[in-house]
Design a binder for these strands. Structure first.
Length: 209
DNA sequence: ACATTAAGTGATT
DNA sequence: AATCACTTAATGT
């Protein structure tokens, strides 16, 4: 199995063996849809490489970013909705070329009681995402697009490990369900405050935000 | 040189 | 904060 050291540290040996037995890995090309909303989820996705974007989409095709799944993470929403074969409430697509480890959902329940390390892992990813979600709910409720943008940018910077982000204003607007003009103006403000430098298709973050 | 796309701006709702 | 209409600047062919 790939990336063995991570698994060895996270899961106990018995569980490891079972994962190896029932999981299959799958390569996804950048941009490909992994789960559409309404679809029944049959596998728990586990990201080995690349990045998965989880988002909501309304009737007009306008999207709102929920979160990204990075390597060695799994999907909190899957854990919460798949146990009762509920359809997905969100769409997911590969942000980059991505490799997934797929685990059949019925194992989730079984392993919860059987393997403490599995339970810990599941609860931890749910807890972390939930906290993050609450934060964005706060921000939307208080209508601070300003703060949401800063949050978005520093999040991007963390996950790419770079201060220099390759993003157009339009892309940002799409992900935050806003409009290009508004994002441009907010970014301009940030630039005046010396928090960021703007280029075409690129944004450079200055210091900690 | 021209077309296309990204970003900036003022006015209006 | 969003939308419109328009300008300016950068990039591709």
């Amino acid at each position: 199995m790939k990336h063995f050291s991570f698994f060895k540290e996270t899961f106990e040996p018995g569980l490891l063996k079972e994962i190896e037995k029932v999981s299959e890995s799958k390569k996804i090309k950048a941009g490909e849809i992994i789960i559409d909303s309404g679809q029944i989820i049959k596998h728990i996705p586990f990201v080995l490489e690349g990045m998965v974007k989880v988002f909501r989409e309304d009737e007009n095709g306008k999207e709102l970013l929920i979160y990204y799944i990075n390597p060695f993470e799994s999907c909190a929403l899957t854990f919460t909705c798949c146990m009762q074969e509920n359809p997905s409430e969100v769409k997911a697509s590969a942000e980059e070329d991505t490799e997934l480890l797929l685990i059949p959902v019925h194992k989730l329940d079984e392993w919860m009681g059987k393997y403490p390390t599995w339970k810990t892992f599941v609860l931890k990813t749910i807890r972390l995402r939930f906290r993050e979600l609450l934060k964005t709910i706060d921000q939307i409720a208080f209508q601070n697009l300003d703060g949401r943008l800063i949050n978005y940018l520093s999040g991007k910077s963390n996950s790419t490990g770079s201060r220099l982000l390759n993003l157009s204003h339009q892309q940002i607007a799409d992900e935050l369900a806003s409009s290009r003009v508004v994002i441009s103006r907010l970014l301009k403000k940030l630039e005046n405050d010396k928090k960021v430098i703007l280029f075409r298709n690129q944004i450079k973050l200055l210091k900690q935000m």
